[in-house]
Structures are given as structure tokens and as C-alpha cells.
Design a protein around this nucleic acid. Sequence first.
DNA 1: TTTTAAATTATAATAAATATCAAGATAGAA
DNA 2: TTCTATCTTGATATTTATTATAATTTAAAA
Lengths: 160, 160
Amino acid sequence: MENRLEKIKKQLHSSSYKLTPQREATVRVLLEHASDHLSAEDVYLLVKEKYPEIGLATVYRTLELLTELKIVDRVNFGDGVSRYDLRVEGAQHFHHHLVCIECGSVKEIQEDLLEDVELIVEERWKFQITDHRLTFHGICQNCQEKRKKQKKKNSKTASL
Amino acid sequence: MENRLEKIKKQLHSSSYKLTPQREATVRVLLEHASDHLSAEDVYLLVKEKYPEIGLATVYRTLELLTELKIVDRVNFGDGVSRYDLRVEGAQHFHHHLVCIECGSVKEIQEDLLEDVELIVEERWKFQITDHRLTFHGICQNCQEKRKKQKKKNSKTASL
DNA sequence: TTTTAAATTATAATAAATATCAAGATAGAA
DNA sequence: TTCTATCTTGATATTTATTATAATTTAAAA
């Protein structure tokens, strides 16, 4: 983690930005919640715990900056809030997401899976792909099992 | 088009909603701009041309309703505005989009292309897919050509 | 140290979307 | 037909996410 932070520091420097304490605190929160999908507000509240003087605008600006530098990716799962997702180190592409329509949980898929599709798109539509966003909506394993149990219960009740 | 409107009317009725004049006017605008990606505001302004008394809230409510009934799909290309996209009749899945990072143009891909990927995801992650969102960001053919021309120009200038 | 630019905070402003509520339209019952 | 209950609408207020502004602070450079 310290390692990753150092690299991010260098990335900032090479674009002549500084890693200010506020920015460092923000990046640390992102690193500590790498698998979550935090909104700007979420990040703000978490950073505040360790750095109470920080302003909301600074968090927004930092997230904007990190997005520009491709250190984080901004995602939107349709609830009207932007969420920020740390890009996996060295990852060529943004990863995919499974959003459960029952419980709202979000799972990440790091595997690319789109290589063939992208070849087709570049070839057939003459479109030069630089990035992608792929989200599947559906029912997660957990909720599928819940549903099954519920069904059993229902059929028992019905047969009484 | 009248045909499509009739079907939408039936869809509404079967969920016990009415196709009020306001709703009809809104649906007509969507049908007339099937390949655009209109925001609620856009739709509102277009509906107003033919039905000036309509209120913004009604348009929002109608779009919400149509989204629920899967007649339109809400998409978000990252500019903070929801856009509404008429679902192609009989289409099993939501179609994909190519968003140009140069000119902002949006092109639709009706081909599925994800069949194999979805099989893998359902199998490997035990996730029961009900819908998806796939957007490619990149450079459209038009802008690629512009870039080439620009390069030529630049090299000419440089050689002077 | 002085100078300069970058970055920060607090707060105001903007913009999209939603909630509220009184009034209007509509369909079925009497 | 008239009455009544329900649905729908329009105007407006409110909420919420995000961005802009302006004064201040910080940090590096001269």
C-alpha cells in the first residue's frame, strides 16, 4: 500500500502536481476501500475521520484530478451519484461490475472478457476504443438463494 | 410508428396506466428521435413545441414510467445527465453505445455481441443477468480522419 | 527573506431530479 | 346523466450532487 502510494505520488509529480496532505489522505481512503464503490460524499466523510479540517471541495477536486490521471475511474450505476473506483495497478482496461437489483451489492470482475468483442467493434465500426464501461444488472448468488428459500416457504404455506 | 404507439398504449393499459395526451406527446417525441439520446430537458423542450402546456414534472414522470415498463432505457454517459433511449422493439437486451471522446457523438450498436461473455459470467460468477450496459469510449471514424489530416498539415508546417 | 504560484477552505451558485399539493380529467357506479 | 373515487397534471418548492468563487494558506523558487 505504501508502495502504491509512492507510485501515485510519482504520477502526480510527473504531471507537476503535488501530493498534499489532503490529497494523500484522500488517496489513502481510496486504497483502504479499494473494493468499495464510494461516492464523493462517502470519501469526504471517511477522509474527515482522519483529517477533519478537509473541505468537501478539495475532495471533489482531488477525485477529479485522480480521474484525469487515470488513477481512479468514475462510474455511475444509475442512482445519480458518481462513484470512484481505484484502477487496478497496471490494468489495461477498466474492470466490469455486477450490480444486484435486489440488494444493490456491487461485485467487480477483473478479467477482461471483451477482447474479442473489442476487435469486432474496432473492425466493423472503425471505432478506435480507448476505454469501456460494462455493467451487468441481475441477481447475485446470495439473493438467488434467498429467493429459493422464500419459494419453498411459500409453497409450504400454500399447501396448508 | 402509429403501430408502435398502439403497442405502447396496450403495454400501458395492461399495467393499468392510461395513454394521456401528455404521455402520447412524449412518446411521439421519443419515437421521432429514436436514434438520439435525449435528456429529460431535451424531451421537455421538444414536447413543448407541440404541446406547450405540458409541465416538466410530467415529462419526468412519464420517462420514469416508460423506464419501469422497459419501453425506454435510462443511460448515463458520464456527463451527469440521464438520457432516455427507446428500446428497440422486441430487443432482448439493451443495445451498446460508442461515445466519441473528441466530438461527443454517440452511435448505437444493435448487435448483441455479449452472448459468450454473459454465459461465462453467469457460469463463473453464478450471477443471473437480467440486463446490461456496455459503452465504449474512443475515437469515431470521423475524428480519426480529422486527426490524420491535422497530422499531415503539421508535418508540412514543420518541414518549412 | 521576499516573491510567486498552487492549493485549500468555506460558502455561494448551479443544475438535475424529486416531492408536494391543489386543481383538472376520467372512468365507472348509481 | 350526475356523482364519486382515482388518476394525472402543472406549478412550484425542495433536495441533492456538483461546480464556481473569493479570500486565505502553503510551499517552493528566487
